[in-house]
Amino acid sequence: MFSIYKKEIRSYFNSPLAYVLFGMYIFIFSFFFLGLLLNPRGSSQFVMGGYLYQVGILLTFILPIITMKAFAEERKNGTEVLLMTSPVSVAGMVLGKYLAALTVFFVMTLLTLIYPIITINTGNLNVMPTVSSYIGHFLMGAVFVAYGIFTSSLTHNQIIAALLGVAGLFGIWFVDFLSGMFRGSLRSFANWISFFYRFRDFVQGILNSKDLVFFLSLIGLFLLLSMIVIEKRRWSQG
């Protein structure tokens, strides 16, 4: 598992893709942040969490691009054979790749910490809700990465993997967006399924074990599904 993790990390940081995405992410992040500062709305005290909530939508596009190559590229290049015929388990492969992509996302998130740090030094920041929001943000991103790894295991085409990733994640956001229009059980289902809805607890500074379990089990679910897909293909491919 560790050998795969190291290889993935090297391949991420050796290619321009990671840096382009970092740059894009920070640019858009900063752009909106600036807009927020110039046109303060509502509360006099700046709420970082609300901002991270909006950035979450950006992640639905960026994270699938990071994870798209994970398994799709290996299949396309025939290097999957090397991994499968070496003494590494499928679980080790999936975990190694997941942790590597998660590390990339972690670095991305670290870069954005510059804004809360500036805000603490120059103004007023509610520290605890910001910390909990960042935890929520990271957990949500961790689910996105797991989902991206899963879509990458489905196909040998990276573009399709990325599109499936974006479609799924953005779809969930859309459900969340529309949930205001729903009534009754449909609405509670929309809220239950939505990462974004759960994220609101974190914004308010609440670390809810229910949400934590929800996120962690989703990560587990998608990684498990990836393993099953890869195993199953070995048995059925023709």
């Binding site: 560790f2 190291k6 290889k7 391949s11 290049n77 290097t79 054979v81 070496s86």
Partner: peptide
Amino acid sequence: PEIPPIYTDMTVNEYLSFVSDLK
């Protein structure tokens, strides 16, 4: 395998150390 399982973005040395690691 029929198609050599190589990573085009690695040098020969890096590739072989990755394989050593893997094995």
